[in-house]
Amino acid sequence: MTITLQTIIFALLSVVVLGSALFVVTTRNLFHAALMLILSFFGVAGLYVLLESGFFAVAQVLVYIGAISILFIFAVMLTRGMVAMPRVNAQAQLAALVSVLLFVVIVVIVNPTALSIKVLPGASERVLGGIPWQFTTVTTITDSYIKQFGASLVDGSAYLLPFLLAAVLLDIALAGAVQVARERRPAEVLAERELMAAEAAEEQQREQALDTAPETVLAADHH
């Protein structure tokens, strides 16, 4: 394998992406995490550029960095007040183990080393269905790939319907998010709180009844 300039650029970009991602998942400070997330997204955009899909690189910056990350920052701001919170939960170690294991498995499938070939002969064929993945050379593409892509999005026999559905989805998500996160007026808040309190009380009663006389509760549930 030859090391070219592209290889080095790739390596740098990878380090950025992965490093900042690591930071995101390990830091205690959520604001820093959000900023590192932005950095990671930038790195990914660079990788897209390297893959000669500039459109998506720009889309990435616009959507992820310009919108989603801002959302995250808003959310972080709105949910302040968490002090002295542990970073990881109870199963963090197990989660790390599983993640590493998954990584190993995927790597083995994607890039079998001599060892893994000995241990898992033919794994790649089985998973990838015989696609020769060891691409080292690529064909050139024309710039009209964007045109093709755009045309396919409005082509009734191609991806028009999913496109429209995606638009609908965005609408719904927008409306839903607005409603869910809406600021409530005090009366509303109070009413909501009462409702929640009533439900909580009922829940507690249920708990107690379950402890003393489970049958009646379960029977009542059947109705």
Binding site: L94, V98, L101, L102, V105, I109, L120, A123, R126, V127
Partner: peptide
């Protein structure tokens, strides 16, 4: 996820 992983590894092996 753990279960899926186990199945995949088993499948491979």
């Amino acid at each position: 996820l753990a279960m899926i992983l186990v199945i995949v590894i088993a499948f491979l092996l």
